[in-house]
Amino acid sequence: MTSMQKWTTKHLTLCAVLTALALALSTLENLFPVTLLIPLPGVKLGLANIVTLFALYYLGTGSAFMILIARCLLGALFAGNASALLFSLLGGVLAMAIMALLRRCRKLSVYGVSIAGAAGHNIGQICAAMITLGNTMVLGYLPFLLLVSLFSGALTGFVVALLFRAMEHVKLSRT
């Protein structure tokens, strides 16, 4: 999306719905904490990343970025936690930037883009943790988070691939 896009009501609504969906997925995810299985802070399935990835392909970088920012702000508002905002923003923006770049590579499928995005999200979160804690101790978690991101990224990619396959038959006009 290079030129200024025209914000039709339909486009705006679609963005809003996707934002709501991302928030709902984050909340859903918190109900099933993966941290019980793998006791590492920050281990998540990253279901909200499904929305980011979908929006990136379907609506373009600009809209996906706006959905991401809205999700982070509202998510922090719901959680009532200012430091959570830094975590989700740094993680989200880094994941977004990596995915937006890799998306242009035609030799990569949605899986590769998704895994790179999940890894970027974890790196961003570790950076946020290092900033808030003021020491590099948390860096020790990164290898494990990266390993988990291989699986969570592949899962996200799989879901988005399913989504696009299902939508081949849906004539949802892109306005």
Partner: peptide
């Protein structure tokens, strides 16, 4: 408005393995 966004490649490609490998190597490093 029509977006220029093309749908993604839905099947895993060879280069995806490279991405996974890079992440793995980063974890090990």
């Amino acid at each position: 408005m029509t977006t220029k966004c093309s749908p993604p490649e839905l099947r895993p490609k060879k280069l995806d393995i490279l991405v996974a490998a890079v992440v793995l190597v980063l974890a090990v490093v």
